[in-house]
């Protein structure tokens, strides 16, 4: 064991303090947004961390506008569909990358790395033109397509790492036990790769959910505008009114699906599931 592994009381306290500092550092901006979302219009700019007077008015306001509700539906729909497609295709591609030798394998890996590193902003103008020409502009597929494109490299990289962890002999054993390749994949490999698939799903979902660049560039109406884009179009009730409260409320609302998504899948990510497969 290394020194990090030994849990003396002193060490525990040190680690707890460090953890606490990191958590506070990460959460203060979030709490600030939460605090703003509960403030009344009058106290919005008073600079207090804890609101003097609490109100749910901002939340009521955003849910009364179709603008936000529509964007929320778009966001959830587009993110889920993109995640599903990227994970399904990514699983198959990653399996091939991890297990098979095929011509062009290195090229595939290289290209997917290139896609992942490509500056997205330089693609916005050509994509805008292409999508307008194809009639994809301001539609769900118009956003799903780039999200899948950028989600796939992430999915392939994460998943192939997981597939490589699964001993190949398990698959050979399944074949010897009378399984077809499809049965071997479904009954042996897939259950073992599940934690990897869920991890990947979370990562791709967060990637697409948080995207602002494509969402703002490739949409023009409520038909496909997602929440991050819609937020930037928020205005107050009148031209002179500050929309800070409603933006904060919306920002809080859109973090909820992420939290739910992560909590839901985290329970399925059981570490060390493959232990005991081989010798050890």
């Amino acid at each position: 064991m290394t020194m990090i592994g030994t849990a003396t009381p002193r060490r525990k306290v040190q680690w707890s303090l460090l953890d606490l500092a990191v958590v506070i550092y990460a959460l203060v901006p979030v709490l600030w947004i939460v605090s703003l979302s509960f403030k009344t219009k009058e106290t919005l700019n008073d600079g207090n961390f804890i609101p003097r007077s609490w109100t749910l008015q901002s939340y009521i306001d955003i849910f009364q506008t179709t603008e936000f509700l529509r964007a929320l539906v778009n966001s959830i729909g587009i993110a889920l569909i993109s995640t599903l497609i990227a994970v399904v295709i990514g699983t198959m591609a990653a399996y091939a990358v991890a297990r098979l030798e095929f011509p062009g394998k290195r090229l595939l890996i290289g290209v997917s790395l290139l896609v992942a590193m490509f500056p997205q902003v330089s693609l916005v103008s050509p994509l805008f033109e292409i999508e307008r020409a194809l009639g994809l502009f301001d539609t769900w597929p118009g956003l799903i397509l780039p999200y899948v494109t950028f989600g796939l490299p992430l999915a392939i990289y994460t998943l192939s790492a997981f597939f490589k962890e699964i001993p190949w002999e398990l698959e050979k054993a399944a074949k010897m036990d009378g399984a077809t390749p499809a049965q071997a994949f479904r009954r042996v490999i897939a259950p073992l790769a599940a934690p990897g698939v869920f991890t990947t799903a979370i990562l791709v979902f967060i990637l697409t959910w948080n995207d602002f660049l494509f969402a703002i560039s490739l949409t023009s109406t409520e038909a496909s505008r997602t929440v991050p884009a819609a937020l930037s179009f928020f205005t107050g009730a009148s031209q002179f009114e500050d929309p800070t409260g409603t933006i904060s409320a919306a920002a809080v609302v859109i973090t909820i699906p992420i939290i739910v998504f992560v909590l839901f899948f985290q329970r399925r990510i059981v570490a060390g599931l493959t232990s005991g497969a081989v010798k050890g």
Binding site: P167, E169, L170, K172, A173, A174, M176, D177, V188, P191, L192, L273, T274, S275, G276, A277, V278, K279
Partner: peptide
Amino acid sequence: IAMVFQSYALYPH
């Protein structure tokens, strides 16, 4: 035919 592997290759799940 059945095979026994060096690593046993038991299905861990």
